[in-house]
Design a protein around this nucleic acid. Structure first.
Length: 493
RNA sequence: GGCGGCAUAGCCAAGUGGCUAAGGCAGCGGUCUGCAAAACCGUUAUUCUCCGGUUCAAAUCCGGAUGCCGCCUCCA
């Protein structure tokens, strides 16, 4: 089954046809390195991470390019404010970005170019545009003349007249048309600059992506991605620059992820509701954040809140509980506690394994369909139920069941490899979860464990009243105890 | 003002023409348990914002109404 992708350019789901059979070139717009990465950056990163993982698992050789904008007005402003070099700002936030992505389990793209490393490419591209008459230089600036590029506005579904009617454009006497955008900006005193045929200056925002995608993926490549806010003007302008210069399409498929809202509001600096990734990860397992985002389709908006994250946590706990159960049963089986089983268990083995394989196929097909991770997760949970059902139904561990559970573990590994979850050891996961939740609620783990030990003694002495009293006491702190034959474990609701 | 999107159970969320409207969270009943928790079994939308239309058949297509949201300015 082929992969289908919703193409922003046509507003339709299309069958993905790569330029070169078996290969995919994908370019995703990365961050401007002037501030800390927030949950919106996390979503974009996770969405394209999963898309790339899935395409690779389907056998495509993927070249994934994600850039860093490391020269820009916002970077310069921040550098001036802090009295440091603009490169210090860019380097600092690129480093923090890399740390955040690592923590989120995002696989590093194959190429992560920086704008400042491609000055010559950008200048060369601008020259072509000037020579072809698509751009004009004035007082050291170079602007792209949007009215000369006839397809301008096609990606975002607008036209120049409508946009001008909106009248929310800067008044700039130098521009021939208010919608023209800068390819090159002359530098003011004290600002960083590069030499160019138009004098000392720096590139406009959009040209870097045209230059870098061309450098690493060629004039036309398969997929161009980014957040939906980039459709206009950034991607529209990229198309204008690149296609005017080469006369060829820039990318065949345009993918855009939806926004993250926070408590039903748009995230913005003025509202002060920016949620940095590293803040969230202080108190939450990174896979909880991933699962939260993957439970919705990538093009829909998601609403981040403590509650939505806590629901995702419960869902992830359900998965890890099942993984832990599988591990425990298999360990017992390996310790020689399994019984041989009979023909009936063998028939059942085949049945279960077939069902599991079917779920894996359905999962893959869901991801083929415009990377529908929400639907895919539905099949993951079906697999959870199937496995739990088997384990609950069997009093004794039959050898045949071990084979099913081995298969189950393999399939969960596959789910996890695509979604970027289930990478933790279940025991470690629950330990981490307890620590994080305790910290969040200001609970004292030592004190909790002392009470549990006391209760354990009471239980051994069959002093049920005292045992229940301690259970009640801990329950008030949202601590739930799980008794087994020889020990008591605990978790936080 | 222009352009676009969304509306599915208590909450989150798939499904975009035809088998029982996925799944998660929460709830309820049962099994298990010293009591619990987890797990399992059962249950929770005769119906997909509303009104019309197309069709043998619509949550799904078309028209209209209402509500919410995004973009048009830096933004993932």
């Amino acid at each position: 089954m082929p992969i289908k992708i919703f193409n922003t350019a046509t507003r339709k789901k299309e069958i993905f046809q790569p330029i070169q059979e078996g290969s995919v070139g994908i370019y995703v717009c990365g961050i401007t390195a002037y501030d800390i990465c927030h949950i919106g950056h996390a979503r974009a990163a996770v969405v394209f991470d999963v898309a790339v993982r899935h395409m690779r698992s389907r056998g495509y050789r993927v070249t994934y390019v994600k850039n860093f904008t490391d020269i820009d007005d916002k970077i310069i402003n921040r550098a001036q404010k802090e009295g440091v070099k603009f490169t210090d700002i860019a380097e600092r936030f690129i480093k923090m970005h890399d740390e955040d992505m690592l923590a989120l389990g995002v696989i590093r793209p194959d190429v992560t170019p920086k704008a400042t490393e491609h000055m010559d490419d950008m200048i060369a591209l601008i020259k072509i545009l000037v020579d072809k008459g698509f751009a004009y230089a004035i007082d050291g600036d170079v602007y792209f003349a949007v009215n000369i590029f006839k397809q301008y506005g096609r990606l975002s579904g607008r036209n120049l007249e409508e946009m001008l009617a909106g009248a929310r454009v800067d008044i700039n006497d130098k521009k021939k048309n208010p919608m023209d955008f800068a390819l090159w900006k002359s530098s003011k005193e004290g600002e960083p600059f590069w030499e160019s045929p138009w004098g000392k200056g720096r590139p406009g925002w959009h040209i870097e992506c045209s230059a870098m995608s061309r450098c690493y993926l060629g004039e036309t490549f398969d997929i161009h991605g980014g957040g939906e806010d980039l459709i206009f003007p950034h991607h529209e302008n990229e198309i204008a620059q690149s296609q005017a210069a080469t006369g060829k399409p820039l990318a065949n498929y345009w993918m855009h992820n939806g926004f993250v809202k926070v408590n039903s509001e748009k995230m913005s600096k003025s509202l002060g509701n920016i949620s940095p990734i590293r803040e969230i990860l202080k108190n939450n397992h990174p896979e909880v954040l991933r699962l939260f985002m993957l439970q919705s389709h990538y093009r829909s908006p998601v609403d981040y809140s403590d509650n939505s994250l806590s629901e995702a946590r419960s869902a992830l706990i359900r998965c890890y509980t099942s993984l832990q159960l599988m591990n425990d049963v298999l360990k017992n089986s390996a310790d020689g506690k399994a019984v041989p089983g009979n023909d009936k268990t063998k028939a059942k083995q085949k049945d279960y394994i077939n069902k599991l394989k079917e779920l894996q196929d359905k999962f893959n097909e869901a991801l083929d369909d415009d990377f529908n991770t929400a639907q895919g997760l539905g099949y993951v949970f079906d697999a959870v139920r199937l496995i739990n059902n088997l384990i609950a139904a069997e009093k004794k561990i039959a050898v045949a069941n071990s084979a099913i559970l081995e298969e189950g573990r393999k399939i969960f590994k596959h789910f996890g490899a695509i979604l970027g979850i289930f990478h933790d050891d279940p025991d470690h996961f629950f330990l981490t979860d307890r620590e994080m939740e305790s910290r969040k609620r200001g609970l004292d783990i030592g004190e909790i464990e002392r009470l549990i030990n006391e209760r354990q003694s009471a239980r051994t002495a069959k002093n049920w009243d005292r045992a229940d009293e301690i259970r009640q006491q801990l329950a008030q702190l949202h601590i739930v105890l799980q008794d087994s034959k020889d020990k008591t474990t605990w978790s936080i609701e």
